[in-house]
Design a protein around this nucleic acid. Structure first.
Length: 430
DNA sequence: TCTGGGGTCCTAGGACCC
DNA sequence: TCTGGGGTCCTAGGACCC
């Protein structure tokens, strides 16, 4: 019996935040709309029942576009773009504030709709997931002459279920033998797309793509590749593995080679525990540690209080407390401090974060301040850790008492190593 | 036109222990 | 007494992703 071929789907909601907003404000359909900025541009309800929306040109301040509708994208406005730059490109585009609670609500709905048909899901944030279709009944079946007909039909069913459960949202799905390729495939036919690929499609569908499209090749790596004359995934595939390792290190170079040839056997991560929780804010104007001391102090305390509340809401404690600063030159500094025991208490967090702050040079003005908790654990976990640590300490003590001969010989007889040849002219080059 | 806020993972040096 | 090496934790920074 052959094992079933892996069938991994990547599902990506189309312009998610913007599409959720269009459900609420259908009169904006067909217009360039962007989500982002601050909270100061709520739509205004007029006397005649209609609404007045803020325009991008009305916005002044620091912020980025979170999402834009396809009409806004046509004008050159994309996510992560500075709002001021976006305003220069599309001054008449409608600007809406982000409403994460609402997006989370629709996120839960679409994920539940998928789970009804295929329960093995990896969460990849608010608007995308991986789905393992390998063992879903019917997914491996051929339909007529199409060996992938079964999985194609299943993916369409998933799209329909999402559309129905969200009141009209569309998504794009890529199905391939692994996560890496599916992530690329889901983008090939956006929006409202479905792309099913096998390894045979690698040269025609994947290799022409820009290297930057690969999940894991970011702006830095893409620039380094480009400087070496490597621009597409196919360019990477044509590079010798050894050459990639030479330029990018054993780990990343090897991965680049695997990625370009579509090799990826990572399983779906269906459960995950949070690693860190943080709270940060960018100021309206840069602040100075001395001149704006009072204002900074209030912001700092507020961040610590919100962090404490977030920890409590998630039911975790953090043992390492850290701060993040961003200076007026956009350079970032972090400091952290591991406490004797984990906490979720605002005052304890504020005190630890204050200690961290003392270790930073504060002559430059600040544009961002953040507070972070890591080394997270559930309250019961702390007791268990303490218990384990005590047992280990007891074991070590017993070993020291009962078996002194177990110490390394070199520690008892240091003379033994005196004459050993150390690094000489034949040693490793410095 | 100066660049949000929430995360994860990796690397690397030093401390410390055995 | 400055000589080995492995393992783990802490800290700082950086790349990357949604």
């Amino acid at each position: 019996m052959r094992p079933p071929r892996r069938l991994i789907a990547h599902l990506d909601m189309d312009a998610f935040y913007a599409s959720v907003e269009l459900l609420r404000y259908p009169e904006l359909r067909g217009l360039p709309v962007v989500i982002g900025g601050g909270r100061r541009h709520q739509p205004e309800r007029l006397a005649d029942g209609s609404r007045r929306f803020a325009r991008l040109r009305d916005y002044a301040g620091r912020g980025v576009i979170t999402t834009s509708t396809y009409e806004a994208r046509a004008l050159g406005v994309f996510s992560a773009m500075g709002t001021m730059k976006a305003a220069a490109l599309a001054p008449d585009a409608v600007l809406l504030p982000v409403d994460f609670d609402r997006y989370r609500h629709y996120s839960r709905r679409f994920k539940a709709a998928v789970a009804e048909l295929a329960p093995v899901i990896e969460d990849r944030g608010i608007d995308e997931i991986y789905i393992d279709l390998t063992d879903v009944p019917g997914a491996q079946d051929a339909v007529g002459h199409d060996p992938l007909g079964g999985v194609r039909a299943l993916a369409l069913e998933i799209k329909n279920n999402v559309h129905r459960a969200t009141g009209g949202l569309t998504c794009s799905i890529g199905v391939t033998p692994n996560k890496l390729l599916s992530k690329l495939a889901s983008e090939l036919d956006k929006p409202d797309g479905l792309t099913v690929l096998t390894m045979d499609d690698l040269p025609t569908r994947i290799w022409p793509l820009a290297a930057r499209k690969v999940n894991g090749i970011g702006p830095k790596a893409a620039a380094r590749l480009a400087a070496l004359g490597v621009h597409t995934v196919g360019d990477i595939a044509r590079c010798e593995r050894a050459w990639l390792i030479e330029h990018f290190g054993r780990s990343y170079g090897g991965w680049l080679n695997d990625a370009a040839w579509g090799r990826d056997d990572r399983p779906l991560a269906t459960h995950s525990e949070p690693v860190s929780v943080s709270n940060e804010t960018t100021f309206d104007r840069d602040l100075h540690a001395v001149r704006d001391r009072a204002q900074l102090g209030a912001i700092f305390t507020g961040l610590c209080e919100r962090l404490a509340a977030d920890l409590a809401r998630k039911g975790v404690l953090g043992q390492t407390i850290g701060i993040k600063l961003r200076f007026d030159d956009f350079k970032t500094a972090t400091r952290d401090l591991t406490l004797p025991e984990p906490t979720a208490d605002a005052v304890t967090i504020r005190r630890a974060a204050g200690e961290c702050l003392k270790r930073v040079d504060l002559t430059r003005r600040l544009r961002l301040l953040g507070v972070r908790a890591s080394k997270l654990m559930r309250p019961g976990e702390w007791a268990a850790r303490q218990q384990r640590a005590a047992e280990l300490a007891a074991q070590r003590a017993a070993r020291r008492q009962g078996a002194p001969a177990a110490r390394p010989a070199a520690m008892q007889e240091p003379e033994a190593s005196y004459d050993l040849p150390l690094f000489d002219s034949e040693g490793p080059a410095r």
